[in-house]
Each structure stands twice: as structure tokens, then as C-alpha cells.
């Protein structure tokens, strides 16, 4: 893939920032508005897919090397599990929202109001974004040897 014409390249280089930011917004406000980790992660991955279509695979690989994406994928899943285990340590049961109950009560409908839920959303967003990017990237290389990691089925919070 060599990339597309200059018009597409210019526009997508502007748009990609907005798409990426929108993804982050969806993740961070997941506990208040529709959206959350999965939807935001998909949008994050989409911003990279846009780059891949416009500039070609090599450009994206330079920006986000595959091993790094794979690490981020694992890191997201690990963080999610860590939050669950912290719930066991501080709250006495897996997935207890210990931050909300003990440390950060907060008013409903404020940004800081839901304890561990935004953190889990963040972890899921990282996981989904990285793994969806990996899936699409590896599917786009047909000739090279690849092994898709389809462990995207992390349960939504």
C-alpha cells in the first residue's frame, strides 16, 4: 500500500486528531453519556485505520510498531483485571467499586463521580483499541505470516 492522493492525505492528517480526541472523550465520559470503553476503543482504532488507508501500512507501522500495540493490548487487559483484584483487596469482593464507596464519593452526573468505572473504561478502551488495530493490521498483510490475536472479547463493564 502506497497511500492515496495528496487531498486524502491532507484531510486525513487533520481529521485523525479529531477522531482520536473524540475517542478519548467517549472513553472518559463513558459513565455519564452513551459510549464507554468499547465504543471509544473502536474509535481510537479507527483513527489509526484512517491513517493506514491514507498513508499506507509502513507509515502506521513506524508510528505504532506492532510489538508496542501488542504490549498495550495486554496492558489494558491486565489493568482491567488489576482493578477487579483491587476491589477484592479494598472492598472484600471482586469488582467492588471501592473508590466510590470509600475514597471518592462525588455527586452523580459529575465527571469524578463513579469511582473505578472510568478507570475500567480506560483499561477496556486501551485493550479494545490496540487489539482491534492489531486485527485489522494483521488482516491487511495477507502474504506475510501472521497470527491474529482475537482475544477482543473482554467483557464490557
Amino acid at each position: 500500500m502506497k497511500g492515496m492522493t495528496i487531498i486524502v492525505k491532507t484531510i486525513s492528517s487533520w481529521v485523525k486528531v479529531l477522531v482520536f480526541l473524540f475517542g478519548i472523550y467517549i472513553i472518559l465520559f463513558g459513565h455519564l453519556t452513551p459510549g464507554g470503553g468499547f465504543a471509544g476503543g473502536v474509535i481510537l482504532a479507527a483513527s489509526y485505520v484512517l491513517l493506514m488507508l491514507a498513508f499506507g501500512r509502513e507509515f502506521v507501522e513506524k508510528n505504532l510498531p506492532l510489538p508496542l500495540a501488542s504490549r498495550l493490548d495486554c496492558l489494558g487487559a491486565f489493568l482491567f483485571a488489576l482493578i477487579a483484584i483491587l476491589g477484592l483487596v479494598f472492598g472484600g469482593s471482586f469488582f467492588v467499586n471501592f473508590l466510590y464507596q470509600k475514597y471518592l464519593p462525588g455527586q452523580p452526573l459529575n465527571l469524578i463521580s463513579a469511582g473505578t468505572i472510568p478507570l475500567s473504561n480506560l483499561a477496556i478502551g486501551l485493550k479494545v483499541g490496540a487489539s482491534l488495530f492489531l486485527v485489522i493490521f494483521t488482516l491487511s498483510i495477507c502474504c506475510k505470516d501472521f497470527k491474529t490475536d482475537t482475544s477482543t472479547h473482554k467483557k464490557e463493564e
Binding site: 468499547f38 488482516l139 495477507c142 472479547h153 467483557k155 464490557e156
Partner: peptide
């Protein structure tokens, strides 16, 4: 919420199926 989870799961199996097809 159930549909959202089911979509996530079907996304995983779709990706695996397509890669096996390829």
C-alpha cells in the same frame, strides 16, 4: 447491555473467521 456484549463477542469470532478464510 446484553447486545453490546454479544456484539463484542461476535466481533472477536468474526475476526477469527475472516482470518481463517484468508
Amino acid at each position: 447491555a446484553l447486545v453490546l456484549t454479544a456484539i463484542v463477542i461476535s466481533l472477536g469470532s468474526l475476526a477469527l473467521m475472516i482470518s481463517i478464510c484468508v
